[in-house]
Each structure stands twice: as structure tokens, then as C-alpha cells.
Design a binder for these strands. Structure first.
Lengths: 172, 172
DNA sequence: TTATGACATGTCATCTTTTGCATGTCAAAA
DNA sequence: TTTTGACATGCAAAAGATGACATGTCATAA
């Protein structure tokens, strides 16, 4: 159950509201996991019931900030150190990239690959802006390594797409 | 609904039984999507009901080989060309890699990262064996590009993990 | 003052995915 | 001959994820 552990991890870095968690999933962890508020709030309640998180502050707009308990820290450590990782991945865009050059007429394949290329470059810009924001902020973000991995992957994907486009050209 | 389109894509490359599809998901598409037979068979039935696939051969052991119909090809093309891609990804091991150096004591973090590193190298070997098998087979696999992307990503991940390990060393 | 948009939390129906159970064929090796 | 392992298909229950519905607060700008 990765949602649970991803949430424990985010809360271990810094206590947060459910709303904060939803944003962090989309911002810092978007290359790794996704969860929307309709999953997050019930899971927070379950985690509280299991004694792994607790409300550490209540603020404006009925907000509740959660932090880890001892049991939460222990469970997170157990998962990270003792549980065998699953190497499974899911990426719709990877499925598409693999199929497009194989199955479409060269003209259609070019359309699809060029859109993928634009998406990759757009995503890289987004990552670069996050880095810029972190640096403007003093550089102390715990998520810089995650963003960094995304930035290292980006040119690899770009190169692969360009090679697929070039191979299309050879056939045309 | 990516399962449906991934299956259409695999069948477009070459007709297959449900059992074949399950293996291809684990072999060729393992970096992109996963599905087990208990998902595949019902989805094949639905696709047949929708007129997108049809039985093109029946073999030993009650096996049924499916291929795409015209409607199946049309749906696949529509999805690849016209539908906006979702850039969401899910990777449990990415979640773990991000959290481990951040949240664990250096000793535990080292254990977790070194296991991740071993996994990456093991996976790379598996990919290299697939490439070797394809080349021994005459080189004509439609999935070589998918494997190739995995092989290009592998050293990037390796480098990132080694940098995280080095950063741990600095703190110790 | 009122409208907008970010903040904030929640439920519910539906769909997707996993896991465990269950059955059976066929070829090759012991 | 019998047993093992790959091939082959299927169902059902449970868990996980999505998308729509629903409500309300608060600060800021028009």
C-alpha cells in the first residue's frame, strides 16, 4: 500500500494538512505518485485511527495539520528498510511512446511523437521553475533530489524521442 | 483507460493469446504498464463484445489467439493521435528512493539505497538479456525501442543513487 | 459590497487493480 | 508412468483510485 507510505513520508518531512499533501503529490512527487484529496482525507482518518498520525495544530478554515506519531515513524522506517520494493511502474505516456512509432503511419506517428516531445520539454521547464523557486527560497527544500532526478531523466527521454523521429524519417 | 489501449497496441503488433499478453506486459512493457491474467481475460471478452478484437485462431489447450478488427485499429489510432496524454506516473521505487535519504538515519538510508542500486543493476542485466535474445533471434523485435529506453534510463538512476550515497557519506 | 480564487474538508458511486482460488492441457524428463 | 513445469483460462472478493457532488472559509481586488 504505497499511498499510505507516501503520505507517511511526506508528513515525516514536515507536518501538513490534507490540502497541503494533495499539492505536494502534484508538485514534488508528481514523477513518482499521484493522489487526490478524495483519497487523502479518508486515508488520513485511517492513519489517525491506526495511531500513526495525529493532529498537531488546528488553523483557520477548519484546517487540521497532521504529524507523525512514534508508531508512524516506526512503520515508515520498517517499510523503507525491511519491505522488498516492487519495481512495477505505470506510465500512460510511456505506453503511448512505445506504441506510436510502431503502429501508426509515419505522418500520424510524427504528430504523436512531436506532441510527446513538447510535453517533455514543458515538463522540464516546470521542473526548472521549481528549482529556481527553491533556490530563491534559500535552497533548503527536501524535495530537490526528486526534482533533480526528473531533470536528469528529461534529456534521456528527449533523445529517445528524437531518435524515434529520425528513424521515421529514414522510412519516409 | 490505458489497459484497454495497451492491449490493443500489443495485439496490433502481433495477434496473441491472453497468456501471451500477460508475458508481454511483464517483459516488453514492464517499464510502462502492468497487468495480470485476471485483468486481461475479462478485458479481452469486453473488447470482443465491443467488436474491437476477434479470435483469429484456436490452438491446443483451449487457447484462443486474438487479433484486432478494423474497429480496434481505428480506436487505437484515435487514442494515440487524438486523445490528450496523461502525464501521470506511478513508481513505488521512486517514492522509496526519494524518501530514504531524507528520512532515515544514515546507516538505514545506506541499506535502502544500496538495495535500490542492486535492483537497478539487476534490472539492467535483465534488459541486456532481452536485447541479447532479440539479437540472437534476428533483431526483429518490435519492442526493442522500449527496452532501449529502459537501458538509457538505467545509468541515470544509478548515478543519482550513487550521488545520494555520496551525500550520505559527507554527513557521516 | 460582491465576486473571484485559493484554501480546506468531506462523501459516494463507479471503475480499476490486486490477490487468492480453481481448473485443466500438454510435453518432456525422471 | 508419474511428476514437474510451462501453457492456458477463468471467477470472486477485497483493495485502491477516480470523478462528481457538496459545503464552507477567508483575503483580495474590482
Amino acid at each position: 500500500m504505497s499511498l499510505r507510505h507516501a503520505m507517511l513520508g511526506l508528513l515525516a518531512v514536515e507536518p501538513a494538512t490534507g490540502y497541503d499533501l494533495a499539492r505536494r503529490f502534484d508538485k514534488s512527487l508528481s514523477n513518482a505518485w499521484h493522489a487526490s484529496h478524495s483519497q487523502i482525507y479518508p486515508e488520513l482518518a485511517r492513519l489517525e485511527g491506526a495511531g500513526m498520525v495525529e493532529v498537531v495544530a488546528e488553523g483557520a478554515r477548519n484546517s487540521k495539520t497532521y504529524g507523525l506519531t512514534e508508531a508512524g515513524h516506526a512503520e515508515l522506517r520498517r517499510w523503507l528498510v525491511e519491505v522488498e520494493p516492487s519495481r512495477q511502474q505505470r506510465s500512460e505516456s510511456a505506453v503511448r511512446m512505445f506504441l506510436a512509432p510502431k503502429l501508426l503511419a509515419p505522418g500520424d506517428a510524427r504528430i504523436a511523437l512531436e506532441r510527446d516531445l513538447r510535453d517533455v520539454l514543458k515538463q522540464r521547464e516546470a521542473l526548472e521553475q521549481i528549482v529556481a523557486a527553491i533556490e530563491a527560497d534559500g535552497g533548503g527544500s527536501p524535495f530537490l533530489p526528486a526534482v533533480d532526478l526528473g531533470l536528469r531523466m528529461s534529456p534521456v527521454t528527449e533523445g529517445w524521442i528524437r531518435d524515434q523521429l529520425a528513424a521515421l524519417g529514414d522510412e519516409a
